[in-house]
Design a binder for these strands. Structure first.
Lengths: 121, 121
DNA sequence: GTGGGAATGAAAATCATTTTCATTTGTGAT
DNA sequence: ATCACAAATGAAAATGATTTTCATTCCCAC
């Protein structure tokens, strides 16, 4: 296993905490950093594993990474501009728990996202 | 421009109104329908243009299509055996609507899935 | 210094999706 | 029926993100 290259995280931060792997790679190149695309992907994966960054999907399917706060949250994403709002999901937590119990599931987790067009678009 | 091949739509319906292009293609092949992957993609694009189907992204980035306005459901998936249960998500629909309104989003959709270990595993 | 495991990156492989292009099909006019 | 032309089709190549492979380099404990 490989650990994350710290320059990747710092570039993601500088990018406004929101960028795709390819964008981070290009950014680092432009800034004269010597790094391989492979390492960028590996670092991002490891950051996702460590729950330091979050991964979402753009409409075209490209994965975008963003720094995430520590609390478990969900996202409201604009399909047009990609703007993202972190929202609270208490209702979901409850729903997931009830549904899991009802069907005898244990060790449950869940994903939930809302997407639409934001007021600016 | 090409119009949608009706067999694609009917296969999507039969698939539970929720499938990727590749899945639809494989399904049609298995059922002995003669069709090319290109046509499946083209038909789906055209259905999306006509707003007859909706497109979302799976976590792995693959595009999934579903009939618009179809009362959609959610899934409870076992991480161990892959068994899947369809569950009702009224709570989610409400949550999504409230959150969207609160943040001024329109044309909203959502995804939600619960995963865990089922009683048999 | 030396050995071994971790990190790196170039190049090849993978996979969904799109594009190209030659062929087939359908349709309407004659 | 025949001709002409637009639309539909699909095989194969192109594209683009991501992953895998593998040989090399780096680093640290001994």
């Amino acid at each position: 296993m490989s650990r994350s290259n710290p320059r990747v995280l710092s570039t993601l931060e500088r990018a406004g905490g929101f960028a795709s792997a390819q964008e981070i790679y290009r950014l680092m190149q432009r800034e004269g950093e010597s790094i391989g695309l492979t390492t960028v992907y590996r670092s991002l994966q490891s950051l996702v594993n460590d729950k330091i960054v979050d991964v979402l999907r753009r409409d075209d399917g490209e994965a975008i990474y963003r720094l995430c706060g520590d609390a478990h949250h969900h996202h409201l994403v604009c399909k047009a501009c990609g703007d993202t709002v972190e929202i609270e999901g208490g209702a979901i937590e409850k729903w997931a728990k009830v549904m899991a119990e009802e069907h005898g599931f244990r060790d449950v987790g869940h994903t939930a996202e809302i997407f639409g067009i934001c007021s600016k678009c």
